[in-house]
């Protein structure tokens, strides 16, 4: 997966409402891309629910959170409403998984991304990245706070 110190690979993806979010639009603040396998799968649900609970703390520390999966914007919209999420979910839908591939977290034979976190600094350089050892393991929100503290 993408290593700290690398320039963040470019992307332009649609969020759940059809608005485009590009790498360039993240310039000037710290952002965390949360790559997860699939909307509505049980583990992803737990992961995003807990991130939602700490979203206020993350924002206080100047970090924005973006979920990324291969699902479509429409699926993201339904998933987000079901979970009560307030951070954007980006659709890495067409070409499928292209952004996950650029960040080195795509699993070709499964057709979805690994569970991975990528912190992008205000200068659009990768500050930190973490990949779960298996898709069944959820990266704790503590890892994001530790990475923010280490900036």
């Amino acid at each position: 997966m993408i290593a700290p110190g690398s320039p963040a690979p470019h992307f332009t993806l649609s969020d759940q409402d059809g608005n485009e979010v590009s790498l360039e639009s993240l310039r000037g603040r710290t952002s965390v891309l949360v790559f997860y396998p699939l909307d509505f799968s049980p583990i992803c649900t737990d992961q995003l629910n807990v991130y939602q609970e700490v979203l206020g703390d993350l924002e206080e520390q100047g970090a924005g959170l973006y979920g990324v999966s291969v699902d479509s914007a429409f699926a993201h919209k339904a998933f987000r409403e079901r979970l009560g999420l307030t951070f954007p979910l980006l659709a890495d839908f067409n070409p499928k998984g292209e952004v996950a591939r650029r960040y080195g977290v795509y699993i070709e034979d499964r057709g979805h991304s690994r569970r991975a976190l990528v912190m992008i600094g205000p200068d659009l350089e990768v500050n930190w990245s973490h990949e779960a050892p298996s898709p069944l393991e959820i990266p704790g929100a503590n890892l994001i706070f530790d990475a923010l503290a280490a900036r």
Partner: peptide, 12 residues
């Protein structure tokens, strides 16, 4: 309690 859980890596 909740924050201590987050710090300890509780996710489920």
């Amino acid at each position: 309690d909740f924050r201590s859980g987050v710090r300890a890596g509780v996710m489920t």
